[in-house]
């Protein structure tokens, strides 16, 4: 008690602050940092979940380097990112931009866009999987067939499968991005637009000179957020290709699915941890790069 009385007000403040911070700090250390460190350690070991962990040195990383499937999967992951992020960004901006001006049933339309975001990814992926089936099950191919157009192999194709899996993933994320964009649009002061209009500036110039520059923080947020999402894509792929996870011929397999398969079907925890460390590094680099590129000058 004496000790506390001897402290200055400033010291007491610091004590309080740390006291309150202790909870999240402990939480993060135990739930995040410790497992992360442990996973990095594990990536240098061999472990099948049952026996003892044994040292493997860099063996897991060397194996990864020579693993054709890994490079295929690595490429897939970036295809998800490089297709998914720009497409969803453009579509969600266009929707938000126009929805912002719609007064008629505004709330209802906004809800329609947001609904997929609230739906369970698993349920959605299964429904889409059935949409994509050949006749007599799949709705898309049934429509094509009824017009006499040859069927399209959506999922059973090494070229079509990845875009087919990506489409519902983009659609599911749209709602969230639209809401964020609309909040961003509303935050732009109306006076800028009024001033522009008085000067007789065209709509396109308003868009490129006022709206988009002022939306920059929003765009950064959405880009980083959705990039991380696409780099970690798993549930859509796993559930849409559940009979042949990541197939056909690994053409849709993202890194997370490979990690899952290595860890929980192959029980090769060390190798899975090495893959996880690679994913972690990639996520870190991509996030830092984006923050750097989109930083305020």
């Amino acid at each position: 008690m004496r000790l506390r009385q001897n402290l200055t007000i400033r010291q007491k403040h610091i004590l309080w602050a740390w006291g309150l911070l202790a909870l999240p700090v402990i939480f993060y250390v135990v739930i995040r940092f410790y497992p992360t460190g442990n996973a990095i350690l594990l990536s240098f070991q061999n472990w099948n979940l049952l026996g003892d962990r044994t040292w493997a040195g860099a063996e897991n990383y060397i194996k990864l380097w020579h693993d054709d499937v890994f490079w295929k999967v690595f490429r897939n992951t970036f295809v998800y990112l490089l297709l998914g992020t720009p497409i969803s960004l453009v579509i969600s901006f266009l929707i938000a931009f126009h929805l912002d001006r719609v007064r008629f049933m505004h709330g209802f339309i906004r809800m329609l866009y947001f609904l997929p975001f609230m739906t369970s990814a698993v349920a959605m992926a299964w429904v889409w999987r059935w949409f994509y089936q050949p006749v007599p099950v799949g709705i898309f191919n049934n429509i094509l067939a009824s017009f006499g157009i040859p069927q399209i192999n959506f999922l059973n194709s090494t070229t079509n499968a990845l875009p087919a899996v990506l489409a519902p993933a983009v659609w599911a994320g749209l709602g969230f991005q639209v809401i964020i964009f609309m909040a961003g649009l509303r935050a732009i002061p109306q006076s800028y637009y009024e001033a522009a209009r008085i000067d007789g500036v065209s709509g396109f110039t308003i868009l490129t000179q006022i709206t988009i520059p002022l939306l920059k923080p929003t765009i950064i947020f959405i880009t980083v957020f959705s990039s991380i999402g696409f780099l970690r894509i798993f549930d859509h792929v796993f559930n849409m290709t559940t009979n042949n996870p990541g197939g056909p011929l690994n053409s849709t397999k993202p890194l997370v699915l490979m990690i899952y398969d290595t860890a929980f079907n192959g029980f090769n925890m060390g190798y899975a941890a090495a893959q996880t460390v690679v994913l972690f590094t990639v996520l870190l680099c991509v996030s830092l790069l984006q923050l750097y590129l989109l930083r305020d000058r």
Partner: peptide, 20 residues
């Protein structure tokens, strides 16, 4: 040794013929 991986091998075999 790893049933799911060994199954995958045969799935891939059939698809290499049918798709590729």
């Amino acid at each position: 040794a790893n049933e799911s991986a060994q199954r995958q091998v045969l799935m891939d075999m059939v698809q290499r013929v049918s798709i590729e």
